[in-house]
């Protein structure tokens, strides 16, 4: 009988330990995640037509947030609000509040150029400037006056290309034109160009949709590495890609966020039927 009660005690002890560890882990996870950007009651109108309805979303620091949803659901519209790319569309009007580290990015006194240096963007089709690889990356630092002299600029170009995983492939030909690179390389060049202005946040609008699977995998690997130093928001039509690269996922439908949460939860156990129908391919 003594042996039995000893066994029981040990089991209880182990249980208590496991519970303690679990609680500590959860606490550590929540503590590590601070809100980098936040949208509150964001509405967007294109003329008379409303494209976004009261969108609320927190973008967590050093994590990848993916925005998914069918075409025309407003995910790209929301992404473009995050660095005020919608400003260039005359009929576009944004209401609500979007903050970067607590500061309103639609504050009239805010310098938009400065904002776009802090919140960089990578587009669907690789769009390098018709300039040398070097000049593509050096462009941002030059106009923002980030570097003091040529040596510093050289270093920044090299480190940006390195972070974008492109340095080893182009180090002997940085003077050659950026448009001569392959599609995947061009996209990594665009990422290097975005990184060069030392942003806090990188927005990516379907960055892999024009790339083959290998180039896509390289970009996805890069996104995972960049997460350590940057906050990333990615719009993607590939559910598998959202599941692979992101930590958090928001599902948009008809201009509203239907569901937002941890990526694993969204793809294994979504709470909303619309989310489930979309990610399992039950409606288009």
């Amino acid at each position: 009988m003594e042996v039995q009660s000893a066994v029981k005690d040990k089991v209880e002890q182990d249980k208590a330990m496991a519970l303690k560890e679990e609680t500590a882990k959860t606490a550590a996870n929540t503590a590590a995640k601070t809100v980098k950007m936040s949208g509150k009651d964001v509405c967007v109108y294109y003329g008379e037509k409303q494209a976004l309805f009261d969108v609320n979303l927190d973008i967590l620091e050093n994590s990848v947030t993916s925005l998914i949803g069918p075409s025309g659901c407003g995910k790209s519209t929301f992404l473009r609000c995050l660095n005020r790319m919608n400003d260039v569309i005359d009929i576009c009007r944004v209401t609500g509040e979007i903050t970067l580290e607590g500061d309103d990015i639609y504050d009239p006194s805010l310098d938009v150029v400065e904002l776009r240096a802090r919140v960089g963007m990578v587009f669907q089709k690789p769009n390098p400037f018709p300039k040398s690889i070097y000049d593509n990356v050096a462009y941002g630092p030059r106009i923002h006056g980030i570097t003091a002299d040529r040596t510093e600029l050289d270093e920044l170009v090299e480190s940006s290309l390195q972070k974008a995983g492109l340095w080893n492939e182009v180090k002997d030909r940085v003077a050659e034109s950026g448009t001569g690179l392959s599609g995947g390389q061009q996209q990594r060049l665009c990422i290097a160009r975005a990184i060069a202005t030392k942003p806090d946040v990188i927005l990516m609008d379907e960055p892999c949709s024009a790339l083959d699977p290998i180039a896509t995998a390289t970009i996805e690997e890069l996104i995972d590495e960049l997460r350590a130093n940057y906050t990333i928001v990615i719009v993607t039509h590939s559910m598998q890609q959202a599941a692979r690269v992101s930590q958090r996922t928001a599902f948009f439908h008809l201009g509203k966020i239907i569901e937002e949460g941890e990526t694993t939860q969204i793809f294994t156990n979504p709470q909303d039927e619309k989310t489930q129908d979309y990610i399992t391919g039950r409606f288009g």
Binding site: A243, F267, T268, N269, T275, Q276, I279, T280
Partner: peptide, 9 residues
């Protein structure tokens, strides 16, 4: 199929 959510389960 790369099943998701209910299908995966």
């Amino acid at each position: 199929r790369q099943p998701m959510a209910l299908d995966l389960r």
